[in-house]
């Protein structure tokens, strides 16, 4: 990649598990366990994987909302991993986040206009009439009417609330927007409106998205590239089309096969893996997927597969076929 906006290298976030009255540490949650990826300008990288695999932790670490245990985060080439609050402040403007629950993330006692205008006022970028005009413009950009600025969050529908959150994220002219399940709480017909809005805004402003969702179809739709996580690690990353047409990691293959296709003539649901995801407290050794993998070999139990190039810009972490995963 020539001009990476965001570069994450070997990111780890571990949480201690404590128990007993003395709160002694009895284990470690390997929430994120060595994640590396790069995100280009104007690009959307989708991050998928099952509940608890570490997607939100990656998102929050990138924004420095949680402090990584180790690893490096570079924004525009500058290492921001250890910047102090003040040193980080100019970068805060470039990175914004949109969360899943549009209701929980809005202050119920503030008007929609104040919510959207707050970051602008806090950064002292505009006030008075200029601020109001800027907020009105943001409202229009996300498909809300400027006269709705005086309304409170409860007067908006779920989809409209998510538009407010997006307008707020846009307020400071960010270059990176992290979307953590931005449409998961919305009805299907409203979901499409918000996805279209995100796509349109990206075309207009050229910013990058790190887009998290558990709905593979939504991710497939909006992303240019997709990374699949399992138990704190990226097991596969590739261009969207390549990943969905030629998945090479047995976990990705199982994940895709589990998605119910909205076509009654297409082949019926065939679960390819049994059992549940193991706990991220003391995850399995070697390849973390070996306990559920149909193709696991003896060495998978001990050797941790690295994320290796499998051709066509496709990277996979699987020991099969000299580290290039399984073809289908």
């Amino acid at each position: 990649m020539t001009e990476a906006l965001l570069e994450v290298t070997d990111l780890k976030k571990h949480y201690p598990v404590r128990a007993g009255v003395l709160r002694r540490q009895v284990g470690t949650v390997h929430a994120v366990d060595g994640v590396s990826f790069a995100l280009g300008t104007g690009e959307t990288l989708g991050l998928v994987g099952e509940s608890g695999c570490g997607k939100s932790t990656v998102a929050r670490s990138v924004l420095r909302l949680v402090e990584p245990t180790s690893g490096q985060i570079r924004l525009d080439g500058e290492d921001i991993t250890h910047l102090s609050k003040t040193a980080l402040r100019p970068h805060r403007r470039s990175m914004q986040i949109v969360f899943q629950d549009p209701f929980a993330s809005l202050n119920p006692r503030m008007t929609a206009g104040d919510i959207v205008g707050e970051p602008i006022a806090v950064h002292g970028l505009a006030s008075g009439k200029a601020l109001e005009a800027r907020v009105a413009q943001l409202f229009e950009q996300v498909g809300l009417r400027p006269d709705q600025m005086r309304n409170f969050p409860h007067q908006f529908s779920g989809g409209q609330r998510q538009r407010i959150c997006i307008a707020r994220a846009l307020a400071l002219g960010p270059r990176l927007i992290v979307c953590d399940e931005p449409v998961s709480a919305l009805d299907v017909s409203i979901q499409a409106q918000v996805i279209n809005l995100l796509i349109d805004l990206q075309r207009q402003h050229g910013f990058s998205y790190l887009f998290i969702a558990h709905d593979l179809a939504v991710v497939a739709h909006i992303s240019h590239r997709v990374a699949v996580m399992y138990l704190g690690r990226i097991v596969e990353i590739a261009d969207k089309d390549e990943l969905f047409r030629n998945p090479r990691h047995p976990y990705t293959q199982a994940l895709l096969a589990s998605v119910p296709v909205a076509n009654p003539l297409a082949k019926k649901l065939a679960p390819l893996i049994d059992g549940d995801v193991p706990s991220p407290v003391n995850p399995p050794s070697g390849c973390a997927f070996h306990t559920r993998c149909r193709f696991a070999m003896e060495r998978c139990k001990t050797e941790r597969p690295a994320l290796l190039d499998a051709g066509d810009g496709h990277q996979v972490a699987c020991l099969l076929n000299e580290g290039t995963g399984r073809g289908r």
Binding site: S157, V188, I222, F244, V259
Partner: peptide
């Protein structure tokens, strides 16, 4: 409208980031 508004997986043949069909308005 509902059927047209759901993205499909795999999106083979569909260009990256095609717009989805929307049902305007709210429930």
């Amino acid at each position: 409208g509902l059927m047209a508004s759901i993205p499909a997986v795999p999106a083979s043949g569909v260009p990256a980031q095609a717009r989805l069909n929307e049902i305007p308005g709210t429930v």
